[in-house]
Simulated scan of single mutants.
Amino acid sequence: MTDINTIIHDATIWLLIGFSIVTWVLIVVKVLQTRKASKQSQSFVEQFWQAKNLNDAIAQSKQAEGPTAHIAQVGFKILREADEKTHQDLQQSWSRQDLLERNLRKQILTERRQLEKGSAILASIGNNAPFIGLFGTVFGIIHALQAIAQSGNASMDVVAGPIGQALIATGIGIAVAVPAVLAYNYFVRKVKNIGADLDDFATDFVSLTQKTGFQLPSQQAGASALSQKTTETAVTREQEVLA
């Protein structure tokens, strides 16, 4: 039993060390990810609203990267493909505004899921690391008590060393949990802030395209040309009838 207790205690410490490595790797990755997303979104929003017209904004969105740029790309794609006059399936049975808003919401959720990846691991480590450390401490204390019983001496000098060594697992568990919990709370708040910015941009995007009737300039030009052609055809037929 003594060997098994020692193995469990040592394995618990190594498991906690592994959790600590995973925690710090995730922290570094998530910091770089959120900073990159924030920087890309801020840069794109500034360029987007500085565009002279909607055509320039479309061109900028095609070359840009980041969560906000992806939302703009999806919005322009939906407006380009949407056609209320030909309902080929249920997907196209929505109005342009409803279809746009629906797809923008879906893209926002997709971007948030990308930013939230890894957060569940941090939360799990933060919640369970202290208990794993306590688990290792229990077996460490059992091993220490068995060693004391075998020595037949229960003085403080004999007890303090093994018991203190057993408590190391609990200390390591707490040391692993604290950074994980703090990092999780930080990234949850960061993702919420980025998500709020994405919601604001999506709302402004809908308001902007509403001014053009939820149609892109090329679609508007095609509609105007078709209307003009129809008018010219009607006038020609009327002249033929009069002649």
Rank of each mutant, 00 (worst) to 15 (best):
H70R: 15
D199T: 13
N185R: 09
N5C: 09
K85R: 14
N53I: 00
V28M: 15
L198E: 13
E81H: 04
Q47H: 04
A166C: 03
G195A: 07
L145T: 08
A37F: 05
I13M: 07
A196W: 14
G118D: 09
V181R: 00
G136W: 10
I17P: 10
K106S: 08
L182R: 04
V241T: 07
V45Q: 01
G152A: 06
K62F: 03
T12Y: 14
Q60Y: 01
I163A: 08
K77T: 12
V159C: 11
A177C: 11
E101L: 08
T236Y: 10
Q91E: 14
V235Q: 12
W94L: 12
I108F: 03
H87F: 12
M156T: 11
D89I: 02
F135P: 12
G126T: 07
I125Q: 06
Q165V: 03
H70G: 13
V29L: 13
T12H: 13
Q220W: 01
F48M: 03
G118F: 01
L32W: 13
S41N: 02
D83L: 00
V138G: 00
D3R: 14
A221Q: 15
Q42G: 13
I125C: 10
R96P: 10
E111F: 11
F76I: 00
I13C: 04
A223K: 06
N127C: 02
T236G: 08
L79K: 06
L208I: 13
F131V: 08
K190Y: 13
L99E: 02
F214K: 15
L104Q: 12
K36D: 09
D3G: 02
L122Y: 15
T23V: 14
V74T: 05
T2Q: 14
V45Y: 04
L26S: 07
Q150N: 12
S20E: 03
H143F: 09
T170P: 01
I194V: 04
